[in-house]
């Protein structure tokens, strides 16, 4: 995972986002056992309390569950993962549309640009 952090947002919320992304993309498949808080904190280079807070947030969202004896796991509830993925995608699309609007692109232009880019990528592969 890429653990570089932006300086204008809380670290814990960036950790939440990063782990959500890994779960949504399947980098952390359903049912995966997560490393301990300390190991994850070391990997990300962050304070263990901050990592703990991020994991608690993910638990609250139902993406991760804790088993008292054996640690934390990625949920096996695929519909929940899909819902989180969709919610995150909507945030990204909204940000993208805002930036394109600032550039003065109309809806049609944006759609045409996206379709064109897709064809280009298909031609490349």
């Amino acid at each position: 995972m890429d653990w570089n952090f932006r300086s204008d947002l809380p670290i814990y919320s960036q950790l939440v986002e990063r782990i959500q992304q890994a779960i949504a993309s399947g980098a952390l498949p359903p049912g995966t056992r997560l490393s301990s808080v300390r190991d994850l904190a070391m990997e990300a280079g962050v304070n263990p309390n901050t990592m703990q807070r991020a994991l608690q947030e993910l638990e609250r969202e139902g993406l991760v569950y804790a088993n008292r004896t054996s640690g934390r796991f990625v949920t096996e509830d695929v519909s929940r993962i899909e819902a989180a993925k969709k919610a995150r995608a909507e945030v990204l699309v909204r940000g993208f549309l805002e930036a394109m609007n600032k550039l003065g692109c109309s809806h049609e232009e944006i759609l045409a640009l996206v379709a064109g880019k897709k064809e280009e990528d298909n031609a490349d592969s």
Binding site: S7, D8, L9, P10, I11, Y12, N47
Partner: peptide, 15 residues
């Protein structure tokens, strides 16, 4: 807390 500063001020503790 570090995250409180980042949340309230929208910038890093360093900034």
């Amino acid at each position: 807390s570090v995250d409180e500063i980042r949340e309230d001020k929208g910038k890093s503790v360093d900034a």
